[in-house]
Design a protein around this nucleic acid. Structure first.
Length: 561
RNA sequence: UACCCCGUGGUGUAAUCGGUAGCACAGCAGGUUUUGGUCCUGUUGGUUCCUGGUUCGAGUCCAGGCGGGGUAACCA
């Protein structure tokens, strides 16, 4: 409905460079790629990378590939491949072609022999520990391997032996012959192949040597004709090696461009830490609604459109910063406000008794009132909601002794029950301990639908659910997983100490009847409360489970805090 | 104590050939409103990290500082 959220034309250093490449004729059609390693689930940080690469391809009339960077069978699994594909689609993107780095193992091996023949790679018999030690440090140069000067012929025979399984795991590696004293540690004779007898999910037992990231990534990009290989900042030091391999091979060289990864307050994107949360039982699993994984965000109720809008809005740069989670929540509310149907539900019920209800408060008399499904979208239509003499209202909507800025129900005060009638509080019922157990009031039959013919106003409108028609449903209320906006920065790395003990609370809500049939995967706004998502995992027919996605803004609550 | 990258209001970003700072969110104030939501209007915040230089003129160029981030896996 609102005409804002107009997508301002994206401009940033990467797009500028692409425009220049297109203009100069260096590039004819833009080809990008999203290259995840299938060893875990995608999270919000990946959403930024996905949005970037896919939308750049869209904007420039190019193509975007999805490529599994599956060069390490120890950690990878088909389950993740499937999950990644599903998550990318869920975000709303469709790749123009799908590839696997494993599909290039044969080509990579041929190229390795070529490098060996050119004297640019050698087989090293040193073990991992020795290689690590002789690499030197950030300030001290490394030292040459005693095997560095083997002849191309020797190396070729050895490499073939490695490929043919003649050597035990870990006993030999193929290394690029660059410079053990280079200031960039990545250029100190990086390992290209390691021996590892382990079946690969794509190639089975065909290989017992597997390429390292640096030896596979740039070449994969080259094979696919990627024009702009976009990756995060930590790969900056790898670019010289990326270029070195392509130049040494004399093959097409894509350009790698780095950008800052996405950080959001209260969220962690370290695979290791996320795994710790799951394995330590601190969350329910990778799709726990408190997780920053795409699957978690989905179960929390974050619409993919909101995630993409957020990713586009934050832009890209080379500075590592942290985004306020409020910005993400803004995009979630922005999307849901226009798309989510409204319903009424009471989370913390307090009984409201209408003394002058026809036939008595507890009688059978019922009136069906019409409620709009979405004030922001007339096309969403309306529904009938039963109104009776006994209703549930939100406990916090009544105060026996209201402060001056409290507009809701209080003794002697009149408010509107949304889409229903005006009611005026006549008193309260209390238990022996003095707690209010019911609010008594009278209603004005002339205000049906919520308007007073005499034009009198009320200062508040509150939501309600008829007791007799209410359906009870499980509602899960979520808060940030951590108490600190920057859990990654936790002292000693003990981010677990920063877990928010109240990050999940479950309660039973009294909902209007139509909610009994809420379909899994649906988003609702429970009026005056929050947006909720009908969990697609735990909901059962007739027994929906609602997840609070994000609360509505609350000026009153904010003013009071 | 090496190398690389970076440094614009609270947060994130923008600023054509160098011409004195824009946008979004957040904040504040008011209006509308059958959600204290949405929407609308107005508004507070920046000596563009510092110092010096080039220039009629620099956030934009140069030099030197200071500050932040990254890098030493047979992971990606």
């Amino acid at each position: 409905m609102s005409e804002r959220s107009a997508p301002e034309p994206a401009t940033d250093f990467i797009r500028e460079r692409i425009r220049a490449d297109l203009q100069s004729g260096k590039v004819r059609q833009v080809v990008t790629r999203f290259p995840p390693e299938p060893n875990g689930y995608l999270h919000i940080g990946h959403a930024k990378a996905i949005t970037l690469s896919f939308s750049i391809a869209q904007e420039f009339g190019g193509r975007c590939h999805l490529r599994m960077d599956d060069t390490n069978p120890e950690a990878e699994d088909q389950e993740f491949v499937d999950a990644i594909m599903a998550d990318v689609r869920w975000l709303g993107f469709q790749w123009d072609a799908m590839f696997y780095a494993a599909d290039y193992f044969g080509q990579l091996y041929e190229w390795a022999e070529r490098l060996v023949e050119k004297g640019l790679a050698y087989v090293d018999d040193q073990d991992a520990e020795t290689i690590s030690k002789t690499r030197g440090t950030l300030t001290a140069p490394g030292t040459d391997s005693p095997f560095r000067s083997r002849s191309p012929q020797q190396n070729l025979a050895l490499l073939r032996g490695m490929r043919d399984g003649e050597f035990a795991d870990g006993t030999k590696v193929l290394r690029a012959k660059i410079d053990m004293a280079h200031a960039n540690l990545n250029l100190r004779d990086p390992v290209m192949y390691r021996i590892r007898r382990m079946p690969h999910q794509r190639t089975g037992d065909k290989w017992c040597i597997y390429p390292m990231y640096d030896w596979a990534h740039g070449q994969s990009d080259s094979i696919e004709g990627i024009t702009h290989s976009l990756c995060t900042l930590e790969f900056e030091h790898h670019r010289p090696l990326y270029d070195w391999f392509c130049d040494a091979l004399g093959i097409y060289k894509p350009q790698q461009i780095e950008f800052a990864r996405l950080n959001v307050e209260y969220m962690l994107t370290s695979k290791r830490k996320l795994l710790q949360l799951v394995e330590g039982g601190h969350v329910d699993g990778w799709d726990d609604p408190r997780m920053p994984t795409l699957r978690g965000l989905r179960r929390r109720g974050y619409p993919p459109q909101a995630l993409v809008a957020f990713c586009k809005h934050v832009g890209i740069a080379k500075v590592n910063g942290t985004h306020e989670i409020g910005l993400l929540e803004f995009f979630v509310r922005d999307h849901l406000n226009k798309s989510a149907a409204r319903r009424m539900a009471v989370l913390d019920p307090l009984k409201l008794v209408i003394e002058n209800w026809p036939g008595g408060p507890g009688g059978d008399h019922v009136e069906l009132v019409e409620a709009q499904n979405n004030p922001e979208d007339p096309a969403a239509g309306s529904r009938q909601v039963p109104f009776r003499g006994e209703l549930w209202i939100e406990r916090e909507d009544f105060l026996e002794q209201p402060p001056k800025d409290f507009f809701r129900l209080a003794p002697g005060r009149e408010v509107r029950l949304r889409y229903g009638f005006f009611v005026k509080c006549t008193g309260v019922d209390k238990d022996a301990a003095g707690n209010v157990v019911a609010v008594r009031c009278t209603y004005d039959p002339a205000t049906r639908g919520g308007n007073a013919p005499d034009g009198r106003k009320v200062k508040a409108t509150i939501h309600w659910v008829a007791c007799r028609d209410a359906v009870t449903a499980t509602v899960r209320l979520y808060e940030h997983l951590f108490t600190d906006p920057d859990p990654a920065r936790a002292d000693g790395g003990d981010f677990l100490a920063l877990l928010n003990p109240h990050s999940r609370r479950e309660t039973q809500a009294r909902c209007e009847p139509s909610l009994a049939a809420a379909a899994p995967g649906t988003h609702y706004q429970f009026e005056r409360l929050a947006y909720f998502y009908v969990d697609h995992r735990d909901s059962r027919p007739g027994a929906p489970v609602f997840h609070r996605t994000v609360a509505l803004k609350d000026a009153y609550k904010k003013a009071r805090s």
